[in-house]
């Protein structure tokens, strides 16, 4: 069967690195948020260690992914633009079972684009708030300008929930489309038939 090349290596590597980092950050972050109700990690020390290591990794992940997009122009595939709004109703109708017709899209549908556009923005906010909380001495002035440490902690925490919820939707939709799609993020390839099915389903 003909194979279509979907995801270049750097994209796949960064995807999985981000997935791992965000999962571990959420996990360790949840522990730091409430070490008593969540016994998921050995100690505060371990949790903070994990959190600080993957905070750097995910920061690099975001930077590299954006650089890659700039260099290759692949953001054209996934960046949500105003014109995508036009395509939304059709997709929503399909997802809400109001229509059995799945409109045809380019590489990604507008729902996906929205997600992929929001994520880097949120990650940047997380990095910003996170680093301010991490370096209260050096960045205390910034915290003060932005409304205070307490507020930043709240934002950092609430955005984590946004990640948890949107990632769940993302995973659900992938699994819904079948394991071949998941495999394509590993191998880079998807077979043509599946692709057609997905695009036009």
């Amino acid at each position: 069967m003909a194979q279509v090349f979907m995801h270049p290596l750097p994209v796949r590597v960064i995807h999985w690195s981000n997935m791992l980092s965000i999962s571990l950050l959420t996990w360790s972050g949840a522990y730091i948020h409430s070490p008593v109700s969540l016994k998921a990690l050995g100690s505060m020390d371990d949790a903070r260690f994990l959190h600080f290591v993957f905070m750097y990794i995910v920061t690099w992940g975001v930077i590299y992914r954006l650089l890659y997009a700039l260099l290759t122009g692949d953001h054209k595939d996934w960046f949500f633009r105003p014109k995508d709004i036009r395509d939304l109703p059709g997709l929503l109708k399909y997802y809400l079972f109001l229509s059995e017709h799945h409109p045809h899209y380019e590489k990604y549908n507008p729902g996906q684009k929205m997600l992929y556009t929001v994520w880097p923005v949120l990650l940047i906010i997380q990095a910003l708030t996170g680093f301010i909380l991490y370096l209260p001495g050096q960045l205390g002035w910034l915290a003060h300008i932005l409304g205070g440490v307490a507020l930043l902690r709240k934002i950092h925490y609430m955005i984590t929930w946004v990640f948890v919820c949107t990632a769940a939707v993302h995973i659900y939709l992938v699994l819904l489309s079948g394991w071949k799609v998941l495999r394509s993020m590993v191998t880079g390839y998807i077979d043509e038939e599946t692709l057609h099915e997905l695009q036009d389903e």
């Binding site: 059995e100 939709l173 599946t194 692709l195």
Partner: peptide, 27 residues
Amino acid sequence: IKGRVGILKKGVQRGGDTVDKTGAGPN
């Protein structure tokens, strides 16, 4: 229930008629 996945899965209902070879696919 709608038969998009799982045991009640129906045949594929084709939408468009062109296939974009540059690659596509959700998620």
